[in-house]
Amino acid sequence: MNFLGKCFVVALFVMSCAFMGAAIAAYGAHRDLKAEKQRIQTQLNQTQAQLQTKTSEFQRTNSSLTQEKQAATERLIQLESEKARLAERNRDAQAELDALRTASGAAIAGMEATQISNNALADELNELRDSIREALSDKDRYFATALEATEKFQAIRNDIESALEQNRELVADTSRMTSLLRANNLDPNTPADAITPKVDGVVSRTKRENGAQLVEISIGSDDGIRAGDTVDVFRNTKYRGRLEILRTAPDRAVGRVDVRFQQGPIQEGDRVTTRLKLS
């Protein structure tokens, strides 16, 4: 074999090894392109569907935003008109407020004047009430005085009527006594001062003064006893003495014991009588 054949053998060996390496490499780097294509296609379809969904959502959102923008614009226009109307109303209200303030100032001034007048009237009313109260108290007092005077007047009138009645009875008694005296041949004009009435009483009290014994007896001027009369004093049936009347009162009298006729001590409870007279 010559040199050229050796070179071909070596070249054939080298290329055979290269072929085997390439085949092994191709087999080792095997890829399923169909499945890859299918997967990429599926992913593409999904992406397109998502794109369509997003596009429709975008359009819907866009239309919604457009409507909202339009509504907001209309609302803005309405608010502008409302603002203008409220501003006009505010001006009217301000003008009305100014007018009311002016009227309120006038009313306050009038009210103050009325209050002053009211205070004056209240003071006057209080004075009038005081006057009325005083007048009522005076009226009550005068009424009480009039009532008391009326009672006194009635009492006096009753006394007068009683006195007149008693006077009529006394006149009748006098007339009857005068007739009786004349029927018994007695002069009705005889002075009665010299006649001592016949009455009985008791010694109510005794007292010794300036050496003389004073005796108080239970009969007085209502019984006809007068100063200067004499009364006799008895205890049971025994004569005790004689008293000379010094002073008299309507229901009692005071006499001095006449020692010339005294026949025993005179004590409280002794009887006195006017049967005897010392002339």
Partner: peptide, 30 residues
Amino acid sequence: MTVYTVLMILATVALAVGCIFLYLESASYQ
């Protein structure tokens, strides 16, 4: 047997192995 004979045998074996892998690769696309 010379070295060149061995090289020829190895070259044949390498070609056979390369053909087998190529077949397997082509079979996978069927």
